[in-house]
């Protein structure tokens, strides 16, 4: 073979983190958008939204450290230079939003002088002084970031589906939770 065996898949812990967080973040976006339009279920949904957001923040931090410490599988050769640039940029944007969104939520509740309830008597301390005008700015930012996160997710999903169903370069195999055959076998067949 040519160079020393490159990775064909992301590290196992990276793949687990990816799918776990994908489910959590998508659920979070749906909870968020549902609760602000809901009269009856607002408080129940908010009670889930807060601790889930903090959990996502913690997982994002773990995932970011893992991202720095692990080697990535190379991009498939079917990805052009522009595509690789777009993929890397959207990854950076997703990380930025995964950090920013829970932090903005936490800051927003702090600025609005709300208790930051996790569960029962477990509360988080405020991370900003109580300033109502700051609350209104952060509240808007929380909405804008949520839409941006949802759109980035849709773009990410579209790109993966396009590669998997149209180009059929087995791009999705890199992130599959189960072991997959190496792309070399495929080029033979």
């Amino acid at each position: 073979m040519n160079t020393p065996q490159p990775r064909t898949q992301f590290a196992l812990q990276s793949r687990i983190l990816h799918w776990l967080m994908a489910v959590m973040i998508l659920a979070m976006l749906f909870i968020g958008v549902t609760m602000v339009a809901s009269l009856g279920d607002y408080h129940v949904l908010l009670a889930i939204h807060r601790p889930l957001g903090i959990l996502i923040l913690i997982l994002t931090a773990i995932r970011f450290i893992n991202r720095i410490c692990t080697k990535l599988p190379p991009f498939p050769p079917t990805m052009s230079r522009q595509e690789r640039f777009l993929a890397s940029s959207s990854e950076k944007l997703l990380y930025a939003l995964m950090f920013a969104q829970p932090l903005v939520g936490w800051s927003m509740l702090s600025a609005g002088h709300y208790p930051i309830v996790m569960f029962g008597p477990v509360h988080l301390p405020p991370i900003l002084p109580a300033i109502p005008t700051l609350y209104s700015v952060l509240r808007k930012a929380h909405t804008i970031f949520a839409y941006l996160l949802f759109l980035t997710f849709l773009a990410h999903l579209s790109a993966v589906l396009f590669h998997t169903l149209i180009i059929r370069d087995r791009l999705l195999d890199r992130m599959a939770l189960w072991p997959t055959r190496s792309p070399k076998n495929k080029s033979q067949s």
């Binding site: 749906f30 958008v33 549902t34 602000v36 339009a37 849709l154 999903l157 579209s158 589906l161 149209i166």
Partner: peptide, 18 residues
Amino acid sequence: VIAIVIAGIAGLFAYAGG
């Protein structure tokens, strides 16, 4: 299939948001 998946998720999101 791709269009249905993407439009479906976006549609559900829009429905959830009212």
